[in-house]
Design a binder for these strands. Structure first.
Length: 190
DNA sequence: GTTCCGATGTACT
DNA sequence: GTACATCGGAACG
């Protein structure tokens, strides 16, 4: 994986990752929804500077930042930088493509569209947990392949936050049925 | 379709 | 003590 790809602002990486294929131990699919966070952003974990939890956000570019949310779910981020430590992209949803049986074992016999349609669901389906925090995405168990052609994007405000709620740093694959939630009908094409 | 709730780790007042 | 980048299930319409 080209390291330079992640040496960009979080918003750029968030756009670039839509349409990329992510696998963990051969289980995964196409990323269809992301959100950008950076250190200037009050919604970001990195906003107040490094802590034990967010250390990976200030670590090497192109690594995973995995954290626990609400005490029970995991969320998966890609650490980026561009000279501004504390930047990352939350992967919120993907379209399942490989390892569907493993996903069903972990998540139950759900419709395919419900397996990875949210940050916590995606982590459960792919088997992502805190043990992968800080691990490089260009090495096993991770595999990440970029899209050949840039897909059409939609853009909107991020989900589940109160601070920085107006910042339109949520991106989706246009027309995807695998999003965590729909983008508003008037969502701008990014 | 909607709202409400409980599960509970980590950061913070 | 409160807030939080969530989810699934219950209750309701």
């Amino acid at each position: 994986m080209p390291h330079a790809l992640f040496n960009e602002p979080a918003e750029t990486v968030a756009r670039t990752l839509i349409g990329a294929e992510l696998e963990v131990d051969g289980v995964g699919g196409v990323i269809v929804e992301t959100e950008a966070y950076d250190i200037s952003d009050p919604a970001s974990h990195s906003f107040g500077g490094p802590t034990r939890r967010n250390a990976a956000m200030f670590g090497a570019t192109g690594c995973a930042y995995v954290y626990r949310i609400y005490g029970l779910h995991w969320c998966f981020n890609v650490v980026c930088d561009a000279g501004q430590p504390g930047s990352a992209v939350l992967v919120r949803a993907l379209e399942p493509r490989t390892g569907l049986e493993r996903m069903h074992e972990r998540r139950g016999l759900l419709p395919t569209a419900s397996l990875c349609s949210g940050p916590g669901k995606l982590c459960e389906a792919l088997g992502i947990d805190g043990s992968l925090n800080g691990r490089p995405l260009d090495q096993a168990p991770f595999a990440l392949r970029l899209h050949a052609q840039p897909p059409e994007l939609v853009q909107g405000v991020r989900i589940g936050i109160t601070k920085g709620a107006e910042t339109p740093w949520r991106f989706g694959l246009k027309g995807s049925r695998f999003l965590s939630r729909p983008f508003p009908a008037m969502a701008a094409t990014a």
